[in-house]
């Protein structure tokens, strides 16, 4: 099998999804993968080995999710996959009614992120996927940021019985954290001189913005928290580490996670800033890196935006 010859860490996150799904199919007889043509090239070995459990419904996204839900209703754990906008936007009612409302779980795997396919244009971009998925009752939302995190996340989600959305983006990060749902401290900012208080500025990086957020945290002497799970949030860790100014950085629609973060941080008055992709359509092609700059998601953009916003002297914690 050709794909297994490649070292897992060398695979892109999306290819790692294919590899992990292939392994899970071999490990569990009550698991199936449902696709709608997309990523079939990453599942060729699996389809040969398990022809009845790699189900390609063609270019039919409503049927994609409905079929996965029908499997779940009958005791087969489904991994349901296509590009993020086709999965979450086109088949949204199937996610709400065929999975959540029926009371069954499944693992939805959306690839492409907000602009992995920058050259394809808006139709292949899914900046609203996390915001939409967050409206579905019981949905657990994951945004792993490395190939290893993708595998760990998929394994944990498949082992569970609930409803999960796994956002797989090929904007892999250098900084890796455990894919355990916890909020991890990647950097601690300096406390005010002579004070035992927490540093006021806290950045929370969700998804594939971790490296830029770490660079920004160094430049701003801020605390940086990050998790592979965007919902539900690790509230205890947020309350333990967040200062008076909290910036949520996410590579999808700006502000998506802001209300959930604020709800967890209701123990003290704070200021909040949400940084993410713009609601205005960019109408540009080019590279994903260019899109990150255009949305202000690169390190320089983050530092500039946060400096404009931050008013440390007004901070109620000072």
């Amino acid at each position: 099998m050709s794909s297994t010859a490649t070292a897992p860490a060398a695979l892109s996150p999306r290819a790692r999804f294919g590899r992990t799904a292939t392994d899970l199919l071999a490990e569990r007889e009550d698991l199936a993968v449902v696709i709608a043509e997309i990523s079939a090239q990453h599942l060729e070995d699996a389809a040969r080995a398990h022809p009845e459990r790699v189900i390609n419904v063609g270019i039919r996204e409503q049927l994609l999710v409905g079929t996965g839900a029908g499997l779940a209703l009958n005791g087969i754990r489904p991994l349901i996959h296509t590009f993020a906008p086709f999965l979450v936007e086109r088949a949204f009612e199937q996610i709400t009614l065929d999975l959540a409302h029926q009371g069954v779980g499944g693992v939805l795997v959306g690839s492409g992120g907000s602009f992995d396919m920058s050259g394809e244009g808006r139709t292949h971009q899914g900046p609203a996927d996390v915001a939409l998925a967050a409206t579905v009752p019981g949905m657990v939302i994951h945004a792993p940021a490395t190939s290893d995190e993708v595998e760990a996340t998929l394994r944990a989600a498949a082992a569970d019985t609930g409803l999960h959305y796994v956002r797989v983006s090929d904007r892999a990060q250098r900084t890796q954290i455990p894919a355990d749902g916890a909020m991890h401290v990647l950097r601690t900012g300096s406390a005010e001189r002579g004070s035992a208080r927490r540093p006021p500025l806290t950045l929370i990086a969700l998804g594939t913005v971790r490296d830029a957020a770490l660079e920004a945290a160094r430049a701003l002497d801020a605390t940086l928290l990050s998790s592979t799970t965007a919902l539900p949030l690790d509230g205890a860790a947020l309350r333990a580490h967040a200062g008076a100014e909290v910036v949520v950085i996410e590579p999808w629609l700006a502000g998506t996670s802001l209300a959930a973060v604020a709800a967890e941080l209701d123990d003290a008055p704070r200021r909040f800033l949400g940084i993410g992709t713009s609601r205005t359509e960019l109408r540009r092609y080019g590279t994903p890196a260019q899109h990150e700059v255009a949305h202000g998601l690169d390190a320089a953009g983050l530092v500039r935006r946060i400096r404009e916003w931050s008013r440390p002297t007004d901070s109620p914690h000072r």
Binding site: E29, D30, A32, V34, E52, R53, I55, V57, Q62, L63, V65, G66, T67, G68, A69, G70, L71, A72, L73, N74, G75, I76, P78, E93, Q94, L97, D98, H101, Q102
Partner: peptide
């Protein structure tokens, strides 16, 4: 659970696949 039209037949496709797998 039904109500919104057009959901039962895709669910039944998944059910038929599950029966085949099992």
């Amino acid at each position: 659970s039904s109500g919104s039209l057009g959901h039962g037949l895709p669910l039944a496709v998944g059910a038929a696949h599950a029966l085949r797998i099992r």
